[in-house]
């Protein structure tokens, strides 16, 4: 029961992007289209799960004074492998994500979860925590990019990263005259992000008030 509650927490109450403001650099820059958002989110989730598992498996033998260097080497190795795999099998994703795949290594989420959770809990717990945080991150990236892509181009396109075939495409041609191209620029990213963080803060305040009221 506790595990399921923790898993759901990663989506709404302790959302890494909107609640804890971690990993913002890539979240704001990537979320222009939902292809990029899903690709980046899945990449971060996989790196997070693997790094949590490895660090949790090694937690008894790493000396506690030099644990940060050890974590950084593990995460950097995983990100280099991920970058090479993406370059080989999903070239369209590689060209659109560019330098941000390498920047996963300094993503505050991964080092933060390794330090706070994986170094103190078992392998299965750490893997589930990585999955929950990674899916929460993907969920928030998807939210921002759906809004931005709809408002900026009046259409939603999802394509297969391996073969660049289009899976589905929604074209709101009737609204195409009203599209706001501000939302594909950095300023639009900031404004969308601000609106979503206000919504999440409101949800969090309400649930905190309800908990305090019942106590």
């Amino acid at each position: 029961m506790n595990r399921k509650q923790n898993f759901i927490n990663g989506f709404i109450k302790e959302n890494p992007v909107f609640g804890l403001y971690l990993g913002l650099c890539s979240a704001l820059a990537i979320s222009t289209t939902i292809d990029n958002a899903i690709g980046m989110g899945l990449c971060v989730t996989l790196v997070l799960i693997f790094s949590n598992v490895i660090i949790s498996a090694m937690r008894k033998i790493t000396p506690s004074e030099i644990r940060i260097p050890v974590y950084i080497v593990v995460i950097a190795t995983l990100v280099t492998c991920a970058e090479m795999l993406i370059h080989a099998f999903m070239p369209s994703l590689f060209t659109s994500l560019g330098v941000f795949i390498s920047l996963i290594v300094v993503n505050c989420i991964i080092l933060g979860r390794a330090e706070a959770f994986a170094s103190k809990n078992g392998v299965v717990d750490a893997a589930l925590d990585g999955l929950g945080m990674g899916l929460g991150y993907t969920f928030s990236l998807l939210l921002i990019s759906v809004v931005r892509e709809l408002l900026a181009t009046a259409s939603l396109t999802l394509s297969n990263p391996f073969t660049s075939d289009i899976i589905f495409q929604i074209n709101l041609t009737s609204l195409e005259a009203y599209k706001i191209s501000l939302f594909s620029s950095p300023a639009g990213a900031f404004l969308t992000f601000a609106a979503f963080s206000a919504v999440f803060a409101m949800i969090k305040n309400k649930s905190d008030a309800k908990e305090k009221g019942t106590k």
Partner: peptide, 10 residues
């Protein structure tokens, strides 16, 4: 709900 980081992002 806008106190702190949301209004700073605007």
């Amino acid at each position: 709900s806008w106190v702190g980081n949301p209004i700073a992002l605007v």
